[in-house]
Design a protein around this nucleic acid. Structure first.
Length: 431
RNA sequence: GUGGGCGUAGCUCAGUUGGUUAGAGCACCAGGUUGUGGCCCUGGGGGUCAUGGGUUCAACUCCCAUCGCUCACCCCA
């Protein structure tokens, strides 16, 4: 048997309604904040991600799905969508048509990691990017949009964490400060963190290992070494969040993994999804557009993992979706009396049912019927399974008299309606 | 890439110290007045017990390997 690739999942009809609910909420919310959807290709030239995300990051160095196409171009399935959006922004000169572009996206991403709770190899993210302004109000707006979406899903167990990474020069200086601090303690660090000392020293703050945390407790913080502008911007973000009533905590250890971040970074974590607790993460990337060959254009964005969010909803039972239902199920009934007549009538009945179905559907009534020639009882069970509000019996003696038998499944009441009187049938079902 | 747990019907799981034709619930199908549901009752279909080796008179049960799933580390949304 051929099975789905490791780390990929089918989203089955039985679970599609929560996805559609989430997607609708996303579109409605983004629209409210005047963000426009952008859809970029699912694969890009490998170089885009290498330059955008950073060669040294794990994502680029060991987690990308990269292959060569027939023309020997190195292609990569997108591991995230910021690089693609920025590429499109530059290539299509979006900045020339509008000084500020507020964009959002929804779609699958691909990373070759070991799957676990809340982590897949093909997973789905939504996210937003605002390109063209350095205003910290936008930073705060991003957090607000993301927070609002999660809140509207009924999630409770949320913590908004924010931090500022400052401008690159400041960060480089600070890294030296941190290196000085750690130099004589280096040998006490965990093996992982000793590695990080050389590759990405800031991430030592993220370590879950006791000894590392002990050492880092007294480490100098980037937030105390910020430049004036970054510091002021960060203050604006904080006071905006306070004003609009979004609780947050400043987490000096919050260091984004991707190279392109500057100044504000943030993350919303949930206590309801296991160890992969970050539902959403983002930050400012004022230099990325330039890095990828465009004119200097400041930007800020975030991405959120949809599987993780739905997992949190599941665990908190926060979504109360009403079950699917249909308006009417048509049931072909046999004649009580005359078997031979029944046989003669059958093709006519089948056609009558099919025609009635198409008339009802034309009225936007959700309608279905039996295609398996099953018994009335089986058809009734089917109607129940679909949560039908009404059934219409077509056939038998009523049919011979030019009538249909309409039954309301919630109270069991039945009434005869003339086949010609479609108006009446449809208005009862619609009421 | 590293480590732990687990692989018995479509799903959730039983299966006693290895011992005849492998079970239950749910789901599915059919019937319970050959024209009427949700409840209930009866019956039915469906499993090479993940795969391949090994130990044994005998393996779903013990051992090894492979594959898969899962959780955690790592990394990240």
């Amino acid at each position: 048997m051929i099975k789905a690739i490791t780390g990929t999942k089918d989203i089955l009809p039985s679970e599609i309604s929560k996805w559609q609910y989430l997607e609708k909420l996303l579109r409605d919310t983004f629209q409210l904040f005047n963000y426009k959807e952008i859809r970029t290709p699912i694969f890009e030239e490998t170089a885009l991600f290498a330059r955008g995300i950073g060669e040294e990051t794990d994502i680029v160095s060991k987690e990308m799905y990269t292959f060569k196409d027939r023309s020997e171009t190195s292609i990569t399935l997108r591991p995230e969508n910021t690089a693609g959006v920025v590429r499109s922004f530059i290539e299509q000169s979006l900045g020339a048509q509008q000084s500020l572009n507020k964009l959002y996206y929804i779609g699958p991403m691909f990373r070759q990691e070991r799957p676990q709770a809340g982590r897949l190899r093909q997973f789905h993210q939504f996210g937003a990017e605002a390109l063209g302004s350095t205003s910290p109000l936008l930073d705060a707006e991003m957090i607000q949009v993301a927070y609002r979406i999660l809140k509207n899903l009924g999630l409770k167990n949320l913590v908004v964490k924010i931090n500022s990474l400052g401008i690159p020069e400041v960060r480089e200086n600070y890294k030296n400060v941190l290196r000085d601090f750690l130099n004589d303690k280096k040998n006490n660090l965990s093996e992982e963190s000793r590695k990080r000392f050389d590759t990405n020293i800031l991430r030592i703050f993220d370590s879950k290992i006791e000894v590392d945390q002990q050492i880092m407790k007294d480490a100098p913080l980037l937030i105390d070494h910020l430049d004036e502008q970054s510091k002021n911007d960060f203050d604006v973000v904080k006071s905006f969040l306070t004003k609009v009533g979004i609780p947050f905590e400043v987490d000096p250890a919050l260091v984004r993994g991707l190279d392109y971040y500057t100044k504000t970074t943030f993350e919303i974590v949930s206590g309801s999804v296991g160890s992969q607790s970050a539902l959403c993460g983002g930050g400012r990337y004022d230099l990325l557009v330039q890095e990828l060959g465009g004119k200097f254009t400041p930007g800020i964005g975030f991405a959120a993992g949809m599987e993780r969010i739905l997992l949190a909803c599941e665990n908190e039972k926060s979504l109360n979706l009403s079950p699917d239902s249909i308006d009417v199920y048509l049931i072909r009934v046999d004649s009580k009396s005359d078997e031979q007549l029944e046989l003669d009538l059958k093709p006519e009945l089948d056609l009558a049912v099919a025609k009635l179905a198409s008339m009802l559907r034309r009225e936007n009534l959700i309608c279905d019927y039996d295609y398996l020639n099953r018994s009335v009882k089986a058809q009734m069970r089917e109607a129940n399974k679909y949560n039908a509000k009404f059934v219409v019996f077509v056939g038998g003696d009523e049919f011979k008299n030019g009538e249909l038998n309409l039954k309301n499944l919630s109270n069991g009441e039945q009434q005869l309606i003339k086949i010609d009187d479609f108006e009446k049938l449809k208005s009862i079902i619609k009421s």
